[in-house]
């Protein structure tokens, strides 16, 4: 296989006495799209938040581009917030609630990171922002404020904002769950296009059609452990283990397989 972008070893995360992640081992290779599925509360968000250190792992190691994040001390990992800021610039995150900056235009939302953190000259940053906005089909809204956009448009801007930092890996935490049903398609199409461009992605989603059509690998999380994983045709169609089967029974009836998505139809540009 190609090189590893993300490697998670023995990851545990507890909130007080509640252990949410109970030893996760997961590797994502360059250009790979991995979909993370599982019931609500199984720890999917917690896992993503550990990967970009919005939450600190309780135990375990995370390697990004082959480099161990944090410092080993007495068998545990110690993290320095100032170092983690640098790590986060290499990990793109897209949230369920978009979280665009409402006081900034679409363009400024996308350029603020490169300009203020990377020190990219504004002219260059604007050029690159235009490129990312075109990728997600929303370049014509560059001068608008987020409040003037639909949810689907806002989420595509949020994707462009994360891409503008040129991250090693993109994390999506239920990027379409807060959207009205008619707006889900345009965001999924944009995400699919990224995947086809070779973006490395770790995607938490309930859109099993997306997972089926786009993921190279599907990981089913159950009660804080990886319960079953494999190619989508296996996990989503012929799951071997009982919990995966239960989970899919709730979804398959009305969501599988998703009608063929045509990128040109929903994303212009």
């Amino acid at each position: 296989m190609t090189e590893e972008v993300l490697r998670i070893e023995g990851l545990r995360k507890a909130y007080g006495l509640l252990e949410v992640l109970k030893g996760i081992d997961l590797t994502v290779h360059r250009g790979e799209t991995v979909c993370l599925i599982g019931a609500s509360g199984s720890g999917k968000s917690t896992l993503l938040r550990c990967v970009n250190f919005l939450g600190y792992p309780t135990e375990g190691r995370i390697y990004l581009e082959g480099r161990l994040i944090g410092r080993e001390s007495g068998g545990k990992m110690a993290y320095r917030e100032s170092k983690l800021c640098a790590v986060r610039t290499h990990v793109g995150m897209v949230f369920q609630q978009f979280n665009l900056f409402p006081h900034l235009t679409v363009e400024e939302n996308v350029t603020i990171g490169p300009i203020k953190i990377r020190g990219v000259p504004p002219a260059v940053a604007h050029e690159k922002a235009a490129e990312q906005l075109r990728r997600v089909g929303i370049l014509d809204k560059a001068k608008d404020y987020p409040s003037q956009l639909s949810g689907g448009q806002q989420q595509r801007v949020a994707i462009a904002r994360a891409l503008a930092m040129e991250p090693s890996i993109m994390l999506f935490d239920e990027a379409t769950s807060a959207l009205d049903p008619e707006l889900v398609g345009e965001v999924l199409v944009a995400m699919r296009k990224l995947a086809e461009d070779g973006t490395t992605m770790l995607v938490v989603t309930h859109e099993l059609g997306f997972a089926y059509n786009v993921a190279h690998r599907v990981v089913f999380l159950h009660e804080g452990t990886i319960y079953e994983e494999g190619p989508p045709q296996e996990i989503l169609v012929r799951p071997r283990r009982p919990r995966t089967q239960d989970f899919l029974r709730g979804h398959t009836a009305f969501r599988m397989p998703e009608p063929e998505m045509t990128p040109a139809a929903a994303v212009d540009g």
Binding site: T89, V91, M93, F95, Q97, N99, G113, I117, M165
Partner: peptide, 11 residues
């Protein structure tokens, strides 16, 4: 969410 989005970018 505003803090988190800013933090996630690397601020």
């Amino acid at each position: 969410g505003q803090w988190e989005a800013a933090r996630a970018i690397g601020f």
